[in-house]
Nucleic acid binder design. Structure first.
Lengths: 115, 115
DNA sequence: GTAATATATAAACATATGTTGATATGTTAC
DNA sequence: GTAACATATCAACATATGTTTATATATTAC
């Protein structure tokens, strides 16, 4: 499969568009993603893995957390245009706007993710 | 399914990226698409239908031919950015470049499509 | 050490998607 | 009218994808 097809496949799912939308605000760990979107942990992990496989995201490990963020520097020029388009499209998706609001309320106590 | 997801799904297939790539050069009828890409007629018709369903293409009928073209005016702003990204990405896809060369050789005798 | 949390992965299942071959409709040439 | 071509659609099949449940590993707190 070509890199371009992989990028479009990665974005051809509503959940992953929502994930990319909140990661455009700031990097998140898996448990933040699952809590903000209200999805299961395996689902969050798997969708993040697919976005990372398309090289749209990068990841770093810190303690027990795996932080994912948009790989602004790593993606080729055409993919940067697509990421911009996602940001534009998400502005018109009610669910995506709510996700951003929930993201601002996520907090952390010691090593526990709470939202 | 959201319009945005529909657009990404429409583009998450190598054949449809190739179709969009040649339609960015000029409008084509179904038989030109199938001959340039070397795919079956039902396949060409179906893929064109999916791209049209995502509102990336428009169609007009002329005699026995159905002409498809990129709907530059009808697509929302975010989708225009995505179409630009496809043009950019196709420049790096060898198969897509060959399609463009073949497209220039398509001819027509009376009502018969030959390539 | 144990307990709790975070993450990844695999198995099972249902749904979605792409391809092929056959068929039906519509148009043009004769 | 018949023949040839262009197009759309359907049925059948194989493959891909997403969700759920369970499980395994790693890290931190105690």
């Amino acid at each position: 499969m070509s890199d371009t097809v992989r990028v479009f496949k990665a974005l051809s799912d509503g959940t992953r568009l929502r994930i990319l939308n909140i990661l455009l605000v700031r990097e998140c760990c898996v448990c933040e993603v699952m809590q903000v979107l209200g999805i299961s942990q395996p689902s969050a992990s798997r969708h993040l893995s697919i976005l990372r496989g398309a090289r749209l995201l990068k990841a770093r490990k810190e303690g027990i957390w795996m932080y994912y963020s948009v790989d602004h520097d790593g993606v080729p020029a055409y993919a940067q245009e697509i990421v911009k388009a996602v940001r534009l499209a998400a502005a018109d998706m009610p669910e995506a706007r709510l996700d951003k609001q929930k993201l601002q309320k996520t907090m952390r106590q010691n090593t526990v993710c709470i939202s």
